[in-house]
Computed example of a mutant assay.
Amino acid sequence: MFTTVAALASPAPDRAQVHELQSRIRQMQATKLESRGLETHPALASLLPGGSLKAGAAYSVRGSTTLVMAMLAGPSGAGAWCGVVGMPDFGAEAAGRFGIDLERLVLVPHPGEHWLTVTAAIVDVLSVVVVVPSTAARDADVARLTARLRQRESTLIVVGDWPQVEATLTVAHSGWDGLGAGVGALSSRRVTVESAARGGSGSPRRAELWLPDLRETFRAADTDGAGRAQHAGRERPALEAVG
């Protein structure tokens, strides 16, 4: 640190010095952020670059409120304060069953046109914030919020499209189990989730998940027959749905 200060204080640092210092600062910032990962639900680890949610990063989720809850369950269960902005249909009762600590959950269901201001304010104090933008954000606003996330080391989960995300998670296929020929009740939901990393780098990731299973928990779908054993006697056509 003293070397950096001394170099900047020199009367006329040349361009090579400035470039070197800028590179070192960027490396230090990246190392700091990447070294801080948030507790992540095991079912989602294979879908996230680095295996966890990163402090100071943004993520995009498409196609499922339950997937959003699964992304909150890990950090919330580990003691993180979380917030949800602009999602009036976010079910607190369901969130509690899925492992989200309701005593550390802040809900702002109707921010209206002020959704960006509200989001920027609560990332100052909360570790993970979910937001459903009601209007398109300007590039300058996105840049300011991105800088704020890095400064506060908060994680943003956007429902819908968002620039500069670490990864985009999409429910590509969904099927409910439990309904027969006019009888039964929806009991468990198996989904295929696809994950695309920032800038399309690397191969897309894919995972089969129960969101939720019969016990109302999140987990990876079994490939060894254990999952089928759990559903023994309940094999019926799945009802296609996304929610």
Results as ranks from 00 to 15, higher is better:
residue 1 M to P: 10
residue 3 T to W: 12
residue 5 V to N: 09
residue 5 V to R: 14
residue 7 A to L: 15
residue 10 S to Q: 15
residue 11 P to T: 13
residue 11 P to F: 10
residue 13 P to E: 11
residue 14 D to N: 14
residue 14 D to C: 09
residue 15 R to D: 13
residue 18 V to D: 03
residue 20 E to L: 13
residue 22 Q to H: 13
residue 25 I to R: 15
residue 26 R to M: 11
residue 30 A to F: 12
residue 31 T to G: 14
residue 33 L to I: 11
residue 35 S to G: 14
residue 36 R to H: 14
residue 37 G to M: 12
residue 40 T to I: 05
residue 41 H to C: 00
residue 42 P to C: 01
residue 44 L to R: 00
residue 45 A to M: 10
residue 45 A to W: 00
residue 47 L to Q: 02
residue 50 G to H: 00
residue 52 S to C: 14
residue 52 S to E: 11
residue 53 L to Q: 03
residue 59 Y to L: 06
residue 59 Y to K: 06
residue 66 T to M: 10
residue 67 L to A: 04
residue 68 V to Q: 01
residue 73 A to Y: 07
residue 74 G to N: 06
residue 77 G to D: 07
residue 78 A to K: 08
residue 79 G to Y: 03
residue 80 A to R: 10
residue 84 V to Y: 06
residue 84 V to Q: 03
residue 85 V to R: 03
residue 88 P to N: 00
residue 93 E to L: 13
residue 96 G to Y: 01
residue 97 R to C: 04
residue 103 E to I: 04
residue 103 E to N: 15
residue 104 R to A: 09
residue 109 P to M: 04
residue 114 H to T: 12
residue 118 V to K: 03
residue 122 I to S: 07
residue 123 V to A: 05
residue 125 V to Y: 13
residue 129 V to I: 09
residue 130 V to Q: 07
residue 136 A to V: 14
residue 137 A to W: 08
residue 139 D to T: 12
residue 142 V to P: 01
residue 143 A to G: 05
residue 145 L to E: 06
residue 148 R to M: 12
residue 155 T to K: 02
residue 157 I to M: 03
residue 159 V to A: 15
residue 160 G to H: 05
residue 161 D to H: 12
residue 161 D to W: 07
residue 162 W to M: 11
residue 170 T to D: 11
residue 171 V to P: 00
residue 171 V to G: 00
residue 172 A to D: 13
residue 177 D to C: 09
residue 179 L to G: 02
residue 180 G to K: 00
residue 181 A to L: 10
residue 187 S to V: 08
residue 187 S to R: 12
residue 193 V to M: 00
residue 195 S to F: 00
residue 206 R to E: 10
residue 207 A to L: 02
residue 211 L to H: 00
residue 212 P to Q: 01
residue 216 E to L: 09
residue 222 D to P: 13
residue 226 A to K: 10
residue 227 G to I: 01
residue 228 R to E: 13
residue 233 G to M: 02
residue 234 R to A: 13
residue 237 P to V: 04
residue 238 A to W: 12
residue 238 A to G: 10
residue 239 L to H: 10
